[in-house]
Amino acid sequence: MGAIFRRELGSFFSSSIAYVFLASFYLVSGYFFCNLTLGNASSDMSGMFSSLLLIIVVLIPILTMKSFSEEKRQKTDQGLLTAPVSLGGIVLGKYFAVVVMYIMGISIVFLYALVLSYFGDVAWNMVVANYFALLLLGCAFISVGMMISSLTENQIVAAVVSFFALLFMYLLDVIASYVKFEFLADVLNSLSYFNKFYEFTCGLFNLTSVLYYISTAVIFNFLTIRIFERRRWS
């Protein structure tokens, strides 16, 4: 797992993906920080955090698109799958490499908070809670993107499908508002990733939400492992 993790992380930087991801994340988050926090002369960063959610829906597919599809296309998966490593080790090694890339991106918010602290009082526990929520949500989204990547040989297909899958997950509560059946709307609302995230930005730390994000990540990673298992047996 360690070897795969290190190689994967290295490959983000040897290709341009790491730089594209980090630069665009810093650019857009910086814009939101200036506009929504500094521009409003407010020390409240929650507006920026909820906007960041949409950014990660766009940017996470960039990180996950090639994780398995490229291996399959270059036939390097054959090397991994015939090495003395478990399937779980392969999937998690890659997963944590993407998570670390993601953390490098979102950790910029602490810099923003630091800037803000020169101008006013920063509610640090709010920032940390928001950061934590963004991290967990990212972990869930990354696992979805990686599962989609394991289904195709084409990076672009993986990126586009992941984007729409994440967008769907992001918009669950919006979709719920269009649903006529109350029961179904309730289900969609309770599954909504945004609602749970919104609670965090309001300062509510809900353990259910934390568990929800973590279990999403666990389930989709498990599905990825199963996909590999199944491919071997078919």
């Binding site: 360690g2 070897a3 795969i4 290190r6 190689r7 290295g10 490959s11 040897s14 290709s15 270059q74 036939k75 390097t76 998966d77 054959q78 090397g79 991994l80 015939t82 090495a83 003395p84 490593v85």
Partner: peptide, 28 residues
């Protein structure tokens, strides 16, 4: 087992040295 598949499983963006080091770690 040491396996050389029909298409060698090479990570083409790595140097030979880095790649073999990776394999060394991968095989523990």
């Amino acid at each position: 087992i040491g396996y050389l598949p029909e298409i060698p499983p090479l990570y083409v963006d790595m140097t030979v040295k880095a790649y073999l080091n990776f394999i060394f770690d991968l095989k523990k």
